[in-house]
Simulated assay, not measured.
Amino acid sequence: MTLAEGIWEQIFVFDNYAELLALVRNSLIAGAALGLVGGLVGVFVIMRDLPFAVHGISELSFAGAAAALLLGVNIVAGSIIGSLIAAGAIGVLGARARDRNSVIGIIMPFGLGLGVLFLALYEGRAANKFGILTGQIVAVDNPQTAWLLGTSAVVLTTLWLIWRPLAFASADPEVAMARGVPMRALSFAFMVVLGLAVALSVQIVGALLVLALVVTPAAAAARITASPVLLPVLSVIFAVASIEGGILLALGSSIPVSPYVTTISFTIYVICRLAGTHRLRRWGTRRTAPAA
């Protein structure tokens, strides 16, 4: 067996696949919920230019999860608390766009440093430490699934309540402000929603690669449509396809789920980018073509 064949068999292992499916039932359920949340939240992340904030929040979410692991309490709860602290800090201290990146740049290393400290103090299984960073597909038990689904329901309900004014404020903030839309309150509410979405995503893909669920699907959808209806629909489809496909591909392998999720997500983005570029070129050619 060549080295390439050995690596390939490590990446894609389908032995006893049917029996293994039962082990990831909770992960598939949670993945569907996270795909829905990440796809919808990601639309506003792209519209409001907040990808950097996602990464900043994920670092404190990682610190919260690591602290929970060290203390022996619910990891999902710890991740959510860390995310909410980061989201609140960014929402309050970085209310103005020019201050936001500085605040995020300060929060990121602080959160990462705390997370590393807590993991260094943790004396349990190394797999638990690694899973917080890169995700685990069989680590979602029934209590965690209940936390994930409950928090997803809170995020989706909040988005449903603020969707229209948030879309207006994101698309045209100056006009929205002139019309009396509560910009500061909406911004803070969305940061809280974003914090919850990031905390949920960390449980599946880990803190390092959360952008693949919260940013990439929406960015891919935005390359092929600007429709306010089709954009969130495609974003959700891409997010769910990425996470569910990643879980199913990683099932028989010892490799973490995150590389599979990120590869699928990136592939979708590349295809959408190429399709969007091709469409623009055709549209431009038609506009510049001489009349018959």
Results as ranks from 00 to 15, higher is better:
Pro165Lys: 02
Trp163Met: 01
Met177Trp: 07
Leu149Ser: 06
Trp163Ser: 12
Val198Tyr: 04
Phe168Asp: 01
Leu208Pro: 09
Ile162Met: 07
Asp141His: 12
Glu174Thr: 06
Thr216Met: 06
Ala207Gln: 07
Val175Arg: 10
Ser152Tyr: 03
Ala167Trp: 06
Pro217His: 06
Ser227Thr: 12
Val181Glu: 00
Trp147Thr: 01
Val229Met: 08
Thr216Gln: 12
Asp172Met: 11
Pro217Asn: 13
Leu211Gly: 08
Val181Cys: 06
Gln136Glu: 09
Asn142Tyr: 05
Leu186Ser: 02
Ala185Gln: 13
Val205Leu: 06
Ala219Met: 10
Asp141Val: 13
Val192Ala: 08
Gln136Trp: 00
Leu156His: 12
Ala197Ile: 15
Gln203Pro: 07
Ala220Ser: 15
Asp141Met: 11
Gly180Asn: 12
Leu208Met: 15
Asp172Gln: 14
Phe188Ile: 11
Gln144Met: 14
Thr158Ala: 15
Ile204Arg: 07
Val210Met: 00
Thr157Asn: 05
Pro182Ile: 06
Leu230Tyr: 10
Ala226Val: 13
Thr158Met: 09
Gln144Cys: 01
Ala207Phe: 05
Ala153Ile: 04
Thr145Met: 15
Met177Arg: 14
Trp147Tyr: 05
Val138Glu: 01
Ala207Ile: 14
Thr158Lys: 00
Leu209Thr: 14
Leu186Ala: 02
Val215Asn: 04
Val202Arg: 03
Ala167Gln: 12
Ala146Arg: 05
Arg223Glu: 15
Pro228Ala: 07
Thr225Tyr: 06
Leu156Cys: 04
Val154Gln: 03
Phe188Thr: 03
Gly195Phe: 11
Ala146Glu: 10
Gln144Phe: 02
Val140Phe: 07
Gly150Phe: 08
Arg179His: 09
Gly180Lys: 02
Val192Lys: 01
Ser152Asp: 06
Ala218Asn: 11
Leu156Gln: 01
Ala199Asn: 09
Leu149Glu: 04
Val210Leu: 08
Val192Trp: 00
Ala153Cys: 03
Val192Cys: 12
Ile162His: 11
Ala178Ile: 10
Asp141Asn: 14
Ile224Glu: 00
Trp163His: 15
Gly150Lys: 03
Ser170Arg: 04
Leu166His: 09
Ala176Pro: 14
Arg223Lys: 11
Trp163Leu: 07
Phe168Tyr: 13
Ala218Glu: 06
Thr157Pro: 01
Ala197Asn: 11
Leu208Glu: 00
Trp147Pro: 05
Val192Tyr: 00
Ser201Glu: 08
Leu186Ile: 02
Arg164Ser: 10
Pro182Lys: 00
Asn142Ala: 14
Val193Tyr: 08
Pro217Cys: 10
Leu194Met: 14
Val229Arg: 14
Phe190Glu: 02
Gln136Leu: 00
Ala220Asp: 14
Phe190Arg: 01
Gln136Tyr: 02
Trp163Pro: 02
Trp160Cys: 04
Trp147Gly: 03
Leu186Phe: 03
Leu194Asn: 08
Leu213Pro: 13
Ser170Val: 02
Leu148Tyr: 01
Leu149Gln: 04
Thr158Trp: 11
Ala171Arg: 07
